[in-house]
Design a protein around this nucleic acid. Structure first.
Lengths: 351, 351
DNA sequence: ATTTATAGTGCAAACGTTTGCAATTTTCGG
DNA sequence: CCGAAAATTGCAAACGTTTGCACTATAAAT
C-alpha cells in the first residue's frame, strides 16, 4: 500500500535492462564502463530521483565517509573555531562530521568513543575533557587502525598523532611580559592539573619567575575549572587580604574578564594598580575596556592541521603502526591595554 | 593474513552455540529471550570486545540513529549556542548529530541536503542561508516522511515545522525603545531581504516609526550582509554628510559593535550624541564600553524546542502529512548603556 | 498419558551496495 | 572471415544486522 518511493540501483537496472553491477559501476565512474552507458545510467538515476544509500555502501566497504569529532563544548570560542575549520575542510573532501561534546565529563567521553566506534567512523579527532588521564577508551580505534588525532587537550605517552599549542611557551611569555611591565607579585589562575594545557602553562609561569629570580609562592597559584563562578570565588580570596598582587595571569579569557570586572568593582585601576592577562584571544578580550592582553593560539591553523592530519592518515592504504607524534602550533602574545605600563628593566637572564 | 579483529554477532553465536537471531535478540533485550541467555550473551559480547555495527543495523532497519543539522556557520554565537543544546539533548536520546555548515552559500546548502539525505539521517534540522528562497532541495525529505524542522532562518509557505524568534516584535521593540529615549532620526542596518529575519525586523522598524508618526526615509535603511567590513563601509556613507542620525538600529551585534567603534573614532559620544542598538545579545555587547542594547532571542530555549520537535516527530509511528506549523520563541529587549538617556514622552499611540 | 498452551530458540530472507571473476560482445590485424 | 585481444557487461557472494515464521522444548491442563 504505502508506495515505496525510495529508488535503488536495482530499480535503475531493471528500467534499463542492465545488471546492477553495471549500474553501480556506471555511477561510480568505473573505467570499465563505456561512456555511453554511463551517460544513460546517470540520466536515468537523475530522472528517477535515485539517492545512493550511504549505509549500504558503507556496510559493503567498511567505510562510512564519516569522521567523528569529540570536543568538550562546541560553543566555546576556541573549539568552535577549530570545529568550523575542520568541518569545512572535510566537507570539501566528501566527509561528514559527527560532532559530539563531552561537556567535560569523562563518562560522556567514554560513551561517545563507544558510539562513534559503533558508527564506524573512518577517523576520529578528539580534544579531551579536563579530567581525562586514562585514554584506554580510544584503544579500540588504534587496534582497528582507525586514524586517531588528538588536538589541544591531548594525551601523553599514548601512541597517536597529537596537535597542540605551545602552552609552555605561552605561559612563559605571558609571565615574562607581566614581569617586564613591572609586576613583582603575580598570581596565576590555572585549570586542573589533569590537563596538559595547564601543566604546561604553569610550568611556563614558574620558569619565567625563576628566570627573573622572583620567588614562587604556592599561595599565589589557584587550580580549578575556569568558569566565571569559580573565578569570582577566587577573586574573593585573592582580595580578602593585603598585599594585593600587582599582576594576574589567568589561564583563560573568561577568567581574565571576570577578574577585570571584579577589579573595576573594588576600584582597582587596570593596568595602573594591577595588570591582567588571559589566554586564547577570545574576541571579548579585544573589545572590553581596557582591552585584555591574551595569547593567540591560531585556532584556524590548528583546525587546518587537524583536518590535514586526518586526511593524510585516511589515504594511507597500508595501516601503519602509529607512534606518538606531536605537532606544535605556535602562539603569539597579543599585548593590550590591561598590561600597559613602562617596560621595566628586570634582573635576571637577559631577554 | 591480516587478523580481522572485528567481532560480529556471528562470532558470538558460534562461540556460544546459539543462533545469530538469538544473539541479536538477546543484545536488544527482546522479551522472548530468557534472562539466562541474555546474561550469557552480553557477557560474552563484552568479553570478545563486540561492537555493534550501526551501519548494518541501519541498513536493515532503514534507520541511522543520526540526525542532520545544517546551519550557516557553527562558530557564530547564536547558531553555536543552539547547536550545543540540540546536540546535548539528542545525544541523551541516543542520536548522533551530523553538523554541517552551509557558509551561507545556497549551492552548498543544496549539496548538504543531498549528502544528508544519502546518509539517511532520521531527521533534519535546518537554519537556511541568507539567500535561500527556494526550498525544493528539501522536498525529498518531505516526500519520504523524514522529520524536517526549520529554525531561526525559515521558509514561508513550505509545509514544515518552523521554530522562529519574534523578529517583528524585536524590530518594533528596539525601534520604539530608541524613540522613547529621544531618537528622532533612526538609521536601520538590515541584512538582505531574502531572509525572513530581516524582512520582519524591518517591518517592526517601520511600524514603530509609523506609530510615533516619524516619517520613514528610504535613505535611512541599508541592506547588506552584516559583516564587519560591510558595516564599516556603511558607516562611511552614513557619516559622510550631516545631519548625522541620532540613533542606529543594527540587525546584528557585530554591526552594532563596529558602529560603536567607528563612532568612538570620529569622536561621537554614545549614547549622548547617538544611540546604538544591536540584535542577538552576543556576549560582547555586554562587555564593551558602553555596553550595547540588544535583543535576547533565548537561543538555549530555541535549541530545546528544536530538539523536542525533532524527537516528537521521530516517535510518531504513522507518517503524518506535515502542515506549516510555526512556533514562536519570545524575545526580550536588553537595554544597556548605549541607549541610555532620559525617557521621552513621545507623540503617537500610547505604549 | 495426551493434548494444549507457552516460552524459548533457530532458519533464512532481506536491507542496498560493491567487486572478483566469468561471460559476452566488440574490435581489429592478418 | 577467423581468431585473439580488448572492451564491456553480468553473476553471485558478501558486508552485519533484524525479524516473520516455524520449530522445539517445557509446563500446564485434562
Amino acid at each position: 500500500m504505502s508506495k515505496r518511493t525510495e529508488k535503488t540501483i536495482v530499480d535503475i537496472a531493471e528500467e534499463l535492462n542492465l545488471s546492477v553491477s553495471t549500474v553501480s559501476r556506471a555511477l561510480n565512474d568505473h573505467p570499465n564502463i563505456s561512456a555511453k552507458t554511463k551517460e544513460k545510467v546517470k540520466k536515468m538515476a537523475r530522472k528517477m530521483g535515485y539517492r545512493p544509500n550511504t549505509m549500504a555502501a558503507g556496510l559493503r566497504n567498511n567505510k562510512s565517509k564519516t569522521i567523528g569529532l569529540v570536543v568538550p563544548r562546541i560553543s566555546m570560542f576556541f573549539p568552535a573555531t577549530i570545529s568550523t575549520v575542520i568541518q569545512n575542510k572535510l566537507q570539501e573532501h566528501g566527509y561528514n562530521l559527527l560532532i559530539c561534546q563531552s561537556n567535560d565529563s569523562y563518562e560522556q567521553e567514554i560513551a561517545l568513543a563507544d558510539t562513534l566506534y559503533s558508527a564506524r567512523v573512518d577517523a576520529l579527532a578528539v580534544s579531551t575533557t579536563l579530567y581525562t588521564t586514562d585514554f584506554s577508551h580510544f584503544d579500540v580505534f588504534i587496534e582497528n587502525n582507525i586514524p586517531l588525532v588528538f588536538f589541544d587537550r591531548v594525551p601523553k605517552d599514548y601512541n597517536v598523532k597529537v596537535i597542540k599549542g605551545d602552552d609552555y611557551l605561552g605561559g612563559l611569555t605571558v609571565t615574562k611580559h607581566l614581569i617586564e611591565r613591572g609586576c613583582k607579585d603575580i598570581v596565576h589562575i590555572s585549570g586542573p592539573l589533569t590537563c596538559n594545557l595547564y601543566i604546561e602553562r604553569v610550568a611556563g609561569y614558574k620558569s619565567a619567575l625563576q628566570q627573573h629570580k622572583i620567588p614562587f609562592k604556592k599561595s599565589r597559584i589557584f587550580y580549578h575549572e575556569l568558569t566565571r563562578e569559580n573565578a569570582l570565588q577566587t577573586c574573593e580570596k585573592i582580595f580578602a587580604q593585603q598585599p594585593y598582587p600587582d599582576g594576574i595571569f589567568a589561564a583563560n579569557d573568561t577568567t581574565a574578564i571576570t577578574i577585570l570586572e571584579y577589579c573595576r568593582k573594588i576600584k582597582l585601576r587596570v593596568p595602573e594598580d594591577i595588570k591582567i592577562a588571559g589566554y586564547s584571544n577570545d574576541p571579548r578580550t579585544e573589545i572590553i575596556t581596557p582591552s585584555i592582553t591574551s595569547v593567540d593560539q591560531y585556532p584556524a591553523l590548528m583546525g587546518e592541521k587537524v583536518a590535514a592530519a586526518l586526511l593524510e592518515l585516511l589515504q594511507q592504504s597500508k595501516p601503519v603502526q602509529q607512534k606518538y607524534n606531536e605537532e606544535i602550533i605556535p602562539i603569539k602574545l597579543i599585548a593590550r591595554a590591561s598590561t600597559e605600563g613602562p617596560v621595566v628593566k628586570v634582573r635576571g637572564k637577559k631577554k
